[in-house]
Design a protein around this nucleic acid. Structure first.
Lengths: 204, 204
DNA sequence: GTCTATATTAAGATAGAC
DNA sequence: GTCTATCTTAATATAGAC
């Protein structure tokens, strides 16, 4: 995926600026709704100069997505079968919530890709992601069987952790408007609320 | 919003076909990522004929969104202050899950609009939606005070009902790929899982 | 009401000077 | 490496015949 390795300092800086600008634009408008003009402007470069660094609009998008999948799955990979079930799952939820807070654009880029039918992530979801989820679902089932946590459907448990945490990034605008005048930063309350929710849900 | 009322049967039929096609396309690609060509093809009409019924691409989008807001809020409006707290909230969750199952495109249209910064729904969210949510949050608080349900943040409770149910529509592709070979239809399990979750969360 | 033809602008991408 | 100029295609929208 990273065949062309940047050499000079200026190349590194510009590639980084382009990817950051593209993340900003793609995460808001999706692939087809974004234009090279927007990305070039956001990156402070001309359109042809942008295409000096990347061969096409699609190449930028693919570069972003392929970098994303790994980062996105790291918290789930970190779920330790040897650890305590409830503690591990709560820690996973907290890490996912932190990612929504710290990387909301990445979350929205992913959401856009799925909404559009996952044309570029289809294989990664069907392959690596499914395989990882199935593996971790078995771990969760073993925690249930050992009486560490309640008997619950592990796949839907994972979906619920995803949806509850990513919602704060993906629907940030809506949440901000509804909580206006009440909570400037929804995350502290979100963490308290979700901790309570999963404590109660997982209690055997 | 509905200034031009269709007269003839054929007008009604074509307007409906256009709005249905537009829902299909907009919900997948967002406003900017969708083209009139796609919508016209999906509706079985020529592009100029489509623009005979609607003055512009934006007019179609606005028509869809303004129809959506009301339908979307009906289940929350139905939350009855006189009813039993836990039963009312579980019924709300079930209605929202049914909407994800029966109207997934509407859910994705809404998700796309929020992801793009809610340019056309901003005022409706800040106005009607916020007002309704604040009102129902007070109802939920009164249920907590009366000991009918646990003490929990009512705003985040509402967010959690939205995220958990809408996730099955918005991330349908991802869920389908992960559950492939396991559950053809995720909704029966989703309902069981979410019932358990909210039973445990709301128990005083 | 519906179509073909077309005007007009925007978008992805390239050529070639510096 | 970066720019201006430009090619080409696609997109919104309109004109005008039928």
């Amino acid at each position: 995926m990273t065949e062309s390795r940047p050499r000079t300092r200026i190349q590194k800086k510009n590639r980084k600026a382009i990817l950051d600008a593209a993340l900003e634009v793609f995460s808001q408008y999706g692939f087809r709704g974004s234009t090279l003009d927007q990305i070039a402007t956001a990156a402070g470069l001309s359109k042809p100069n942008l295409l000096y660094y990347f061969p096409s609009k699609e190449a930028i998008h693919i570069e972003l997505l392929s970098g994303l999948m790994d980062t996105w799955l790291d918290p789930l990979r970190a779920l330790d079968p040897a650890g305590n079930g409830k503690a591990e799952l709560l820690a996973y939820m907290r890490r996912k919530l932190e990612m929504s807070r710290d990387y909301p654009r990445e979350s929205r880029l992913f959401a856009n890709e799925i909404l559009q039918g996952a044309p570029r992530m289809h294989d990664a979801i069907k392959g690596d992601l499914k395989e990882l989820v199935d593996r971790k679902a078995a771990v969760i089932q073993s925690w249930s069987a050992a009486g560490e946590i309640a008997q619950i459907n592990p796949w839907h448990l994972i979906f619920s952790i995803w949806s509850l945490t990513q919602h704060y990034a993906d629907f940030e605008v809506q949440i901000g408007l509804i909580l206006e005048g009440r909570e400037n930063d929804p995350y502290p309350e979100a963490e308290r609320y979700l901790e309570t929710l999963f404590e109660k849900l997982l209690a055997p």
